[in-house]
Write a protein that binds this DNA or RNA. Structure first.
Length: 544
RNA sequence: GCCCACGUAGCUCAGGGGAUAGAGCACUUGCCUCCGGAGCAAGGGGUCGCAGGUUCGAAUCCUGCCGUGGGCGCCA
């Protein structure tokens, strides 16, 4: 990250508190000093609402109080502050010295892609991020793609913020669907009709043809589906550290243990021949069945055992993040209820619900249906648009919105395509460096270059945006919102294209010291783009 | 009926207590004697779904209503 930018923040907040004290103003209860980057340039680099938020309780006029704070802050200037002013209804605005921005550039180059933007908010806290978890009854489809892109990006963001992250895939390898899948494979192998409610997709026919004579359809089919899923996810650069099996939980007795634990907690009871979870005591709408009257487990019970198992592995201070599609949102309350019944810390389990994607090709909807056989597989999406475009497009918007993913648009190699636009910015920066080499420019080491000559508005804009990257990454990680990085990348890429257009780096009319400084700026911007793209799992190509 | 999310420019979406609400596409108009014009710049375009409330301040928080998507099984 740019470590001193965080220090500057801290010192500004401290100074504001001191200024308030000097003005004889006591902060009201619950007051938190607001310090933010103003939307408008003329309002400086940082802005505080200190006067606005405290004036009423202190019986003061906000604008006058702000003026008083500004005078005091002007006399006791925090480090790196060039100017303190008052604006609007009573904001106190700070303008930083230009040297701050030059330090950002030097930092980015020194830290490089591996370390720039890295921070330690997590302090090694263990997190298990579970995502995709498609049934092992067929290929992953386009809808799983969003969960895959999202879960992996969240994992990457948390890693960059100092969490110890494990990516996990839960395999529902027992139960009704698994049985139907095995029966469908066996039927297809024997040239017979699929059973009622069975699977009919083309892949069933294809896989059945591969299945060796006499193979156990259940076991062989599970392996076949998993291999396919792993391969497709791998082609999108999504890899899991652990694959957790539901059947293994049954075999190990973990489910019976969980049942016993729920019983001991008084959270389970028998009725109508079934065993119920008293989930309504823990915030759910109604009680839920754990064991059906025919003795079979419901889907819920193994899932509770699974989350209990994960919690044990994550440890007392650990965190579980489970990514579910919107079609599972109804299960959040019962899972949290079960965890509460087991005495777990309710904040230890976070369920991230992603809204469903609408898939189109050239404006026409393509339906995602796993059961009809008319499935759009994730493999097809990747084949059509590429892994980078697929990931970036899936992460373009907040997970709370149900976006439209147009395959044709995502695949287009045009600047209107945000993936291409951002990657192109990186490629252009690389081409500048290549050009400098081709022209025989002897590069000074970054430490020797005078960055003070970087004062063009285009250059300043790049530096300002670059200085915000660590905050963007921190916010994206804490809010589990990778699309914040996507938004930053689009803005930053725009700044790079503007710079590219207006500020030549190498050429007969460019002074040598400016060439040197701009080459360093180019390197820094490249690091910023690569770091941002990296947290999304998207590559930063040197040429397009 | 109940639960969750969403409703911001013509379209796709950022912003999610702060100052004059932003970007891309589309539209209008400029810019190629130098690093990729696959670009850059300027302009027009808004009752932030509607109505109340909280607040010094609401697109943002709360309540109700309307609309859209998803969910509401002893299916998974």
């Amino acid at each position: 990250m740019c470590p001193f930018m965080a220090d500057i923040r801290t010192s500004l907040v401290d100074s504001l508190h001191a200024a308030l004290a000097a003005a004889g103003v006591e902060a009201p209860d619950g007051f938190r000093m607001g310090l933010e980057r103003p939307a408008r340039r003329e309002h400086g680099d940082w802005s505080s609402n200190a006067a606005l938020a405290t004036a009423k309780a202190a019986g003061r006029n906000p604008r006058e109080l702000a003026a008083e704070l500004a005078v005091w802050l002007g006399d006791n200037k925090p480090d790196d502050v060039a100017e303190v002013s008052v604006a609007g209804p009573g904001f106190v605005n700070f303008k930083l010295a230009p040297s701050c921005l030059h330090r950002v550039v030097a930092d980015a180059v020194a830290a490089g892609v591996d370390r720039f933007g890295r921070q330690n908010l997590g302090q090694g806290r263990k997190v298990i991020v579970e995502f995709v978890s498609a049934n092992p009854t067929g290929p992953v489809h386009a809808g799983h793609g969003r969960g895959a892109a999202y879960g992996d990006a969240v994992a990457r963001l948390l890693q960059r913020c100092g969490y110890e992250v494990q990516r996990e895939f839960y395999i529902n390898d027992r139960g009704t669907q698994m049985g139907l899948y095995a029966a469908s494979l066996a039927a297809a192998r024997a040239g017979e009709q699929a059973p009622e409610n069975g699977y009919n997709g083309q892949y069933i026919a294809d896989w059945a043809a591969e299945m060796p004579q006499g193979a156990d359809a259940r076991h062989w089919g599970r392996q076949r589906a998993l291999a396919d899923q792993r391969e497709v996810l791998g082609s999108m650069a999504v890899a899991f550290d652990t694959w957790s099996s539901e059947q293994a939980l049954v075999d190990s007795g973990a489910i019976d243990d969980t049942l016993a634990a729920l019983g001991e907690a008084g959270a389970a009871y028998e009725a109508d021949g079934a065993l119920w979870l008293r989930s309504s005591d823990y915030g759910d709408d109604k009680d839920r069945v754990l064991v059906k009257s025919d003795g079979e487990y419901t889907y819920l019970l193994p899932d509770i055992a699974y989350h209990r198992d994960k919690l044990g592995r994550a440890g007392a201070a650990g965190l579980l993040i489970t990514v579910w599609g919107a079609d599972h949102h109804g299960y959040v309350a019962r899972m949290k209820a079960a965890m509460a019944a087991l005495g777990c810390d309710p904040t230890a389990l976070e369920v991230a619900v992603t809204q469903l994607v609408r898939l189109e090709r050239d404006g026409e909807e393509v339906r995602l249906s796993k059961r009809t056989g008319d499935i759009i597989e994730l493999r097809e999406v990747i084949d059509e648009v590429g892994a980078d475009a697929a990931r970036f497009t899936y992460l373009l918007q907040s997970m709370d919105t149900a976006p439209t993913f147009d395959l044709a648009k995502a695949a287009a190699q045009v600047m209107e395509n945000p993936v291409f636009y951002v990657q192109m910015a990186h490629a252009r920066l690389c081409s500048i460096a290549a050009r400098a080499r081709a022209e025989g420019v002897a590069r000074q080491s970054a430490g020797e270059v005078d960055l003070g000559v970087l004062s063009h508005e285009r250059e300043l804009e790049i530096m300002r945006r670059l200085s915000a990257l660590d905050e963007v990454i921190a916010a994206a990680a804490e809010e589990r919102a990778p699309h914040r990085v996507t938004a930053w990348l689009r803005d930053f890429a725009a700044a790079v294209h503007s710079f590219y257009h207006d500020c030549y780096v190498v050429g007969p009319r460019i002074a040598p010291e400016l060439t040197q400084a701009r080459l360093v700026l180019t390197d820094a911007a490249r690091v910023g783009l690569a770091v941002g793209l990296g947290t999304l799992g998207v590559s930063a190509p040197e040429s397009m």
